[in-house]
Design a protein around this nucleic acid. Structure first.
Ligand SMILES: [Mn+2]
Ligand SMILES: [Mn+2]
Ligand SMILES: [Zn+2]
Ligand SMILES: [Zn+2]
Lengths: 145, 145
DNA sequence: TAATACTTTAGATTAAATCTAATCTGAGGC
DNA sequence: GCCTCAGATTAGATTTAATCTAAAGTATTA
């Protein structure tokens, strides 16, 4: 995605394209490994030392609210962020906490009676287990190390 | 679930049935609304003022590791806990963050090719949207208030 | 009983995220 | 071009959630 496209994308969602906001969005598009806010701050701040922590967090909030970025909460760890590209599900590693993309497929919704008066916006599947890096260490005891 | 059953349940998972651990488990069984650790601490501590914060957190961790309790991470809020009874999915409210149970149904797994070398332990569906309490306020603008 | 492993405790500490209030910027009106 | 002001940014303080520490207590086993 080129810089003009990122600008369009921000403005299309009613967000001003400030240098800091652009940098946060560009970082997320370039780093698809679900970085934490702290990692994003560090990455953006290294390039533009004048981008503060508060601004990074503010912009992440704005981007999530605008629907351009997804926030993934992980038990016992910092939240991770994900520029929404193509739809996909997530695999979360029990051991290292890494979040990985899983090819999207349609999820059957709940029975409307079990949904009641709730308004459904989205269904997503979270897969859990061991990532490719962590699996061997367990599958073969600790011999894999 | 009576006190003897809770004791069995703990010991069956290799956990000593201490008064504090029992109290945490009993609280979760009695309060099915997905309380936070702080709420559990407060509830348990009110009955047994000698149960400390660290012990509440330690025991929650032990219970989660033993597979008796589920931890639910919610974006931007404290984690919530859930004594595992019958299998179910979760609905998380965009507005108030409440976690509600949704009747369980089988989820089709991902294509094995998109799973790769990962080891899958569990698939769960997270539904998102507005809970029954929050839905009216939005469905009708703010007139619902 | 003695040894050992497990558990609890109060309070300190860390980590994540948010808040504050002063300052800065730029799009739109003149 | 200048003005204005809503929106954006900043450094640092603060809050909140969770974990750590080290000492003391309690159960299990030898
Ligand atoms: Mn993703
Ligand atoms: Mn539940
Ligand atoms: Zn892993
Ligand atoms: Zn709600």
């Amino acid at each position: 995605m080129d810089s003009e496209a990122i600008k369009k994308c921000l403005e299309g969602s009613g967000l001003r394209c400030t240098p800091q906001r652009y940098a946060v969005m560009a970082f997320l598009i370039e780093h698809r490994g679900h970085p934490t806010a702290a990692e994003i701050f560090e990455g953006v701040n290294r390039v533009d030392p004048g981008c503060s922590r508060a601004t990074t967090y503010n912009n992440l909030r704005d981007l999530v609210e605008a629907g351009l970025v997804r926030e993934v909460a992980v038990e016992g760890r910092a939240a991770r962020f994900d520029a929404k590209g193509t739809r996909h599900h997530h695999f979360i590693c029990d051991r290292c906490g890494n979040v990985e993309d899983v090819e999207w497929y349609d999820v059957p919704g709940p029975a409307s009676k079990s949904l009641g008066k709730r308004i459904l916006r989205q269904s997503e599947v979270i897969f859990r287990g061991l990532c490719a890096k962590c699996a061997p260490r367990y599958a073969t005891g600790s011999a894999g190390l």
